[in-house]
């Protein structure tokens, strides 16, 4: 893992089942992360005229849940379109399950839930999902059965006979999810799948995505709702200005960003005495009291602070009741990364 570079090799252990090869072969010659990767991007760049939408990105995606985070214009949609074979890279190579993502054969492995709210509006949700099933090669009864199963799964079975034009935003998102899953893809790419979905529906969809990830599917979710990333994603890709600035689990990325101040909440029976000791230490940049027993410290670098705190507890006998890192969330990490990216300019 590296920061501030286009080349990010995600070192997370692989999990779940090995994806099927498009050509029926059981495996590649090379061992290592690429061999178990569902997606493999090698030094991919994408230009739109003079604009570089994606700049020298290298990454692999393994089965499990991956979040894709970045500000507007970061290149998230371009990355997604490259992965789903809607775009071809200007430079580099995009492979899904060993196949070039642009080629039709790769589409067997990809389920795509687009951000755009476009449908055949006059069709019913049921007919639409069934149509997509048929376009994926399912015939007659299997297509019907699979469609029904997915409509049940997204909780739309009882409402699927109405024309899509009459659906709410949340219902449309569910139908989009159902059509993306209809051919049981190895890679599921979801662009803002929770837009317009009510809180209960959101929980349902998140649960389904977790189940899919647990079954060994690679799920890539692009979202602006960063809070949900904490609960949802095994690892996160941070994009900024077309570059992949970090990839890995939140904890890994947070550790990587040791130079950034971290907020730590400490609960102690002796808050004032502890504060007096802490504030003298160079790793503590700021302190404030939180209630009767709480302290919130702003620290840098965190690992030195935690070592010092452990010494205080063990050698000086300070009682630490609770220790909590406040801004290791995706949002905070995102903020830090964007700040880093700004300094990189």
């Amino acid at each position: 893992m590296s920061q501030g570079s286009g080349h990010v090799s995600d070192a997370l252990p692989s999990a779940g089942t090995r994806p099927r090869r498009a050509d029926g072969a059981s495996g590649g010659a090379r061992p290592g992360p690429e061999a178990t990767s569902v997606v493999n991007l090698q030094q991919v760049s994408k230009f739109f005229g003079p604009v570089i939408a994606l700049n020298d990105v290298t990454l692999q995606l393994q089965p499990g849940m991956t979040g894709l985070v970045g500000p507007n214009g970061a290149g998230k949609s371009t990355l997604i379109r490259l992965l789903t074979g809607q775009l071809r890279p200007s430079l580099g190579r995009v492979q899904v399950c060993g196949c070039d993502a642009w080629r039709a054969v790769a589409k067997r492995h990809i389920g795509y839930c687009a951000d755009a709210d476009a449908f055949y509006e006059e069709m019913s949700g049921r007919a639409f999902v069934r149509l997509i099933a048929r376009l994926h090669g399912l015939r007659g009864r299997p297509a019907r059965q699979r469609s029904e199963q997915l409509l049940e799964q997204v909780n739309m079975a009882h409402r699927a006979d109405r024309p899509i034009a009459s659906y709410s935003k949340g219902m449309r998102q569910r139908i989009k999810l159902a059509q993306a899953l209809v051919h049981d893809p190895d890679l599921l790419v979801l662009d803002e799948p929770l837009n317009g979905v009510d809180p209960i529906g959101r929980l349902e969809i998140l649960e389904q995505l977790r189940n899919l990830a647990a079954k060994g599917k690679a799920v890539l979710v692009s979202t602006h709702i960063l809070d949900e990333m904490d609960k949802l994603a095994d690892r996160i890709l941070f994009l900024c200005r077309g570059r992949l600035i970090a990839a890995g689990s939140l904890a890994q990325v947070r550790t990587m960003l040791a130079d950034h101040p971290l907020r730590v909440a400490i609960s102690s029976s002796q808050p004032r005495a502890l504060a007096a000791r802490l504030v003298r230490h160079p790793t503590v940049l700021g302190l404030r009291f939180e209630g009767e027993t709480g302290l919130i410290a702003r620290v840098r670098p965190p690992h030195e602070f935690f070592r010092m705190l452990a010494e205080l507890a063990s050698e000086d006998g300070f009682e630490i009741n609770r220790l909590r890192v406040l801004d290791a969330s995706t949002e905070a990490v995102f903020d830090y990364l964007m700040e880093t990216a700004r300094h990189m300019r």
Binding site: Y112, H136, H183
Partner: peptide, 8 residues
């Protein structure tokens, strides 16, 4: 996009 996302 739905058509181009199929394996056809």
């Amino acid at each position: 996009v739905y058509l181009l996302a199929t394996p056809l």
